[in-house]
Simulated assay, not measured.
Amino acid sequence: MTPQELRLKRQALQDMVFRGSTRFFAFLVLALLAAIILSLIHGAWPSIQAFGIGFITGSDWNPVTEQFGGWNSIRGTLLSSFIALLIGIPVSFGIAIFLTELSPAWLRRPLGIAIELLAGVPSIIFGMWGLFIFAPWFADNVQPWLTEHTAGIPMIGWLFQGPPMGIGMFTAGLILSVMIIPYIASVMRDVFEVVPPMLKESAYGLGCTTWEVVWNVVLPYTRHGVIGGVMLGLGRALGETMAVTFVIGNSHKAIESLFDPGTSIAATLANEFTEATGTLHTASLINLGLLLFLITFVVLVLSKLLLLKLQRGEGAHS
């Protein structure tokens, strides 16, 4: 066998090993995902048998009488994440636009590094800061003002009523927004920087303002990346545990305003899992974990479908 044939045979063997190893790791990820789902279903099965679909809609959570319903935790998870996105997306968008379009060159790098470092702060630090620093200040200065100035406004006034305790659903959403801003802003900044300068310069040459360039050139070019950054922030908000546990109030009662204490799935698991007594209590907590997994999965599927729809729309437009 000639050296050329030996080299080709060795390359073919290397390609076969590479394809086999990548296929193995791809299926390993799917196997791990299936194993997680099956283990959650197995652990939650006593709760599923006892409560069925009523576990999702039920609001009672009483370990003494072994009556468990996850609706208050589910609602708290979705509501706090929605508040975080409602605040975090505009702020992140403004940060990304400032860093890519308006900031002086000498400030872009240090400010960008500072924002990325904020993403590395442990969540328990955010929780401690929120409980001991932010919540008392919020209760003394912001909550009374919001209650006074929104009273009587239809559809809004009831959201900001109640005693100014500092902790509660709204505070949890604010802390979550601070935590997800670095993730969304960093992704937006990175995708905004890949826009070809020629496109922006052409728009400026036609007399467009900075806002018109951003809205009509930058965003359409990078909307897939922007949506991906938002989904990354949403995933962080849905699964956040310690920071939310510190400031949400950890109450399973139904909330009447955003200032009332509530709970989330992650906070309930953090508070009760180590102290759960009885098979049904433990199974109900695992059932909550299964629901959180399903909520995250549904969010990712919907985001993927949205991206596919946008891609089809671009094809039809072209």
Rank of each mutant, 00 (worst) to 15 (best):
F51G: 11
S284L: 05
L300P: 08
L146V: 08
G58Y: 11
A267C: 04
I286D: 09
L307A: 13
L111Y: 04
I181H: 02
S318Y: 11
S202K: 00
I115Y: 03
T282W: 02
I255W: 05
L308E: 14
I83Y: 06
P261A: 15
P122Q: 12
R19G: 05
S318P: 10
E148R: 00
S103M: 13
R19K: 11
I53L: 14
L111M: 10
G228R: 04
L30C: 07
I48S: 02
N250K: 03
T77E: 09
V247P: 08
P144Y: 00
G239H: 10
T274L: 05
T2W: 03
P182L: 06
M16R: 12
V298D: 07
W129K: 08
V194E: 13
L146G: 07
S177W: 03
N72H: 04
L285S: 12
I295K: 06
M1W: 03
A243W: 06
E66F: 01
A119I: 09
V142P: 00
F138C: 08
F192Q: 11
G207R: 12
I265M: 06
S123T: 15
L234T: 11
T282F: 12
L232A: 13
G130E: 05
D60G: 00
I153G: 09
L86V: 15
G76L: 04
T210A: 06
W106D: 15
T210W: 00
M169S: 06
S21A: 11
N250T: 07
F24P: 01
T57H: 03
G262C: 04
K200Q: 13
A26D: 15
G162R: 12
